[in-house]
């Protein structure tokens, strides 16, 4: 088996009494897009800062490509790209100069750097804005510049720390498409977010963090399949007599029937054609009903089931 790109073992980081990262372990294989999910304050950014050797930590080991990561590990650093949560660009330099400056911290060859900078601008759709100062850019363009500065040197490991916060849907899609392209080109990606839709769409594997702990780890489907609730059916039911509710609960694979205002929520623990079975029961018994929707479980449900709270709490 090949060596993991990132190996975090038993990481502990404390701020006084507060434990920000609590015995957190993680391995990331080459070519993966790992989604690091967790609510605000769950320890995602602290873990990333420890991984980048920006922060000291109290306990644990961090290895990248099998080598211990430390502030002087320049050979490792040269292969890493970071896209910060907050926009990290220099206001007084224009778009091109910003990308060139940050790329220049990695690439010495002037010709190669020029090529990389042009490619990064093209990749992020900033070619037309290269003479503009960051202050003149819109929020979305600024985020793209932030990305261009982090990835221009074509790193093998790219860390995206919530890159889509406060970004319009169009720019968000462009960013996500870009990340997929980079991954296809061979980059291993760590993507932190609290937007589960993004993570589900993008990541090949997901780690959920809460209170600094790794509370779930697997592909999106693996995590969802670990849930008891596999399907959720919502029906607008005017008559919610105990007999009807009891009848619904009798249906095969239905394990919970819950009233929710005018609706009834029916939770199923597996099986196929659950909706057909429920509708058959209602029509067979002449029970009137309104709208019907069915939902497959999301990562939020996973999180809710594990922690008892929503991801965006």
């Amino acid at each position: 088996m090949s060596q993991p790109v990132v190996s975090i073992d038993n990481l502990v980081k404390r701020y006084g009494e507060n434990v920000a990262v609590d015995h957190f372990s993680l391995k990331i294989e080459e070519g993966e897009i790992l989604g690091l999910l967790g609510p605000n304050g769950s320890g995602k950014t602290t873990t990333i800062n420890c991984l980048l050797s920006l922060l000291t930590y109290d306990k644990g080991d961090i290895k990248i490509w099998g080598k211990e990561m430390n502030p002087s590990a320049y050979d490792i650093k040269s292969q890493i790209g970071v896209v910060m949560q907050n926009v990290a660009v220099i206001d007084t330099l224009n778009v091109y100069e910003n990308v060139d400056f940050f790329c220049g911290l990695y690439i010495n060859d002037k010709k190669l750097r020029k090529q990389y900078v042009e490619e990064a601008l093209e990749f992020t759709g900033l070619t037309d804005y290269k003479k503009q100062k960051p202050k003149k850019l819109s929020g979305g363009l600024l985020r793209r510049l932030n990305i261009a500065c982090g990835i221009a040197h074509k790193p093998k490991l790219i860390i995206f720390d919530e890159p889509t916060v406060a970004v319009d849907p169009q720019s968000r899609n462009a960013i996500l498409e870009g990340i997929k392209k980079m991954n296809k080109a061979g980059a291993t990606i760590i993507y932190t977010s609290h937007y589960m839709e993004e993570v589900e769409e993008l990541c090949s594997r997901v780690v959920i963090m809460d209170h600094g702990k790794n509370i779930a780890n697997g592909t999106s489907n693996e995590l969802k399949s670990s849930l008891i609730s596999r399907e959720k059916i919502r029906i607008g039911l005017p008559n919610k007599s105990p007999e009807i509710l009891a009848g619904l609960k009798e249906i095969n694979h239905v394990y919970k029937v819950k009233e929710d205002a005018d609706d009834v929520i029916i939770k199923c623990d597996g099986g196929e054609h659950n909706l057909v079975h429920v509708l058959s029961y209602l029509t067979d018994n002449n029970i009137p009903f309104g709208h019907v929707t069915t939902e497959l479980p999301t990562l939020n449900d996973v999180f809710l089931e594990i922690t008892g709270k929503e991801l965006r709490d």
Binding site: L52, K77, S78, I80, V82, M84, N86, F102, L105, Y106
Partner: peptide, 19 residues
């Protein structure tokens, strides 16, 4: 603009292989 504890740009510089 050079120290990670002062600005986001500082973080970027300190993450780079530049001394």
């Amino acid at each position: 603009g050079m120290c990670a504890n002062m600005s986001e740009c500082g973080k970027r510089v300190e993450c780079s292989p530049a001394s």
